[in-house]
Design a protein around this nucleic acid. Sequence first.
DNA 1: CGGAAGATTGATCAGTTTCAAGCTCCGTGG
DNA 2: CCACGGAGCTTGAAACTGATCAATCTTCCG
Lengths: 228, 228
Amino acid sequence: MADMAKQLAGIPLFSGLLQAQYEALSRISLKRSFLKGERIFSEGDEGTGFYVVAGGRVKIFKVSMEGKEQILHLCRPGETFGEVSVFTGQGFPADAVAALPTTVLFFPRAAFISLIRQDPALALNMMAQLSKRLREFAGLIEDLSLKEVPGRLAKYLLYLGGLDRNDAVALDVSKGQLAALLGTIPETLSRILTKLNHQGLIRSQGAQIMILDRRGLEEIAQEGKRLP
Amino acid sequence: MADMAKQLAGIPLFSGLLQAQYEALSRISLKRSFLKGERIFSEGDEGTGFYVVAGGRVKIFKVSMEGKEQILHLCRPGETFGEVSVFTGQGFPADAVAALPTTVLFFPRAAFISLIRQDPALALNMMAQLSKRLREFAGLIEDLSLKEVPGRLAKYLLYLGGLDRNDAVALDVSKGQLAALLGTIPETLSRILTKLNHQGLIRSQGAQIMILDRRGLEEIAQEGKRLP
DNA sequence: CGGAAGATTGATCAGTTTCAAGCTCCGTGG
DNA sequence: CCACGGAGCTTGAAACTGATCAATCTTCCG
């Protein structure tokens, strides 16, 4: 149980809590594992609780009838998902699938809410979590509505490169999934990568991409202008 | 002060609190008024607190460099905005402008957070508020990415008509603003309204729109959306 | 080695935006 | 009271972005 508490303390949602809280969280949580590609929940399913990613990756997404997919978020270890239906009491707003072999902690709704009632710090952490996601979504809406695909891709590449101020970045998702993340399709993504290569802004080889002209990418990312 | 408490109790965020809480909220809040078109805050401004709309309407939006506008949300009386930066400590994620002559209540960050610490009910209400907004944003992302403009318009008309199960709806925003809400431009919106008219699905005259074929609109609205 | 999934490329197409012009409504001032 | 002027809305033609369809190529495992 001590191990569990230690593990929980490393999760942003649970940072800075009292020891007793970690023990309570351990008691109510349920560990579940999923194979790559396995579905965790579907849009509309009753939300009986929420999840924290312990290991692996979880894809939160919407799908159209034609099969096109828009990824809302890729959850990495330490991130939460499914919280929305805990607090609104409606079904899950989107689909969740394990994008890799994944382990999650499940927290049943009622038990978790009673913990929140007991600990304002947990409540504040959760609000920070929700707010962060809200900010991300606002950014995604902005990108989808006000930027073109090259702008979104440039922004993503700069984001990857900015993590460690490195100009040699490695895509951490397949190109098909990257397309779904950027709100486009693989064909279009491929063409735009080719174009950026041809313009000398990047040099890509499979999942390895070298950023050659950061300034140029920033211009595309900020202005969303068309490429010549 | 009793009046104020009564007013606060009618706001979802503040429902079901103790009398003492209403008095505390009254003490820390600040009433501010804005003319139509007046700016309340800009993206990136330091968030020193959040707002509740008392009267009027507040437009939360993003603008592109070319001037195109995407409305994230139109806040009506009782709704909150600017909460995100209270809990993440960064600047406001979008712009806020009074879309009508507007009165708001401002709640300073630190004082409000200390109230949250004292009252789990307030915390839970706030989480419900944030979750509701998150769900709306997820829907907007889905619409922008997976639906075409006619689908988004049809959905909006059905939403308006569904409020009171009425087939005679009145647009509550200008067509230019509706375009910005749907992620398009006035010209495109105008063309699509004309097309829906011509197809006999609606009969529009200025801001007055009669829904003639609910079924037909539903089909268009769900196009691109996976059937549940 | 073979085969399937993923990725690229080409040709075409549909939906949306852009640019431009004209129209309607409405408040204001002569 | 009418005329003017401007903002908002509509309409048309052309340009453009991204999607679709189809074919190939690559990668990567079993």
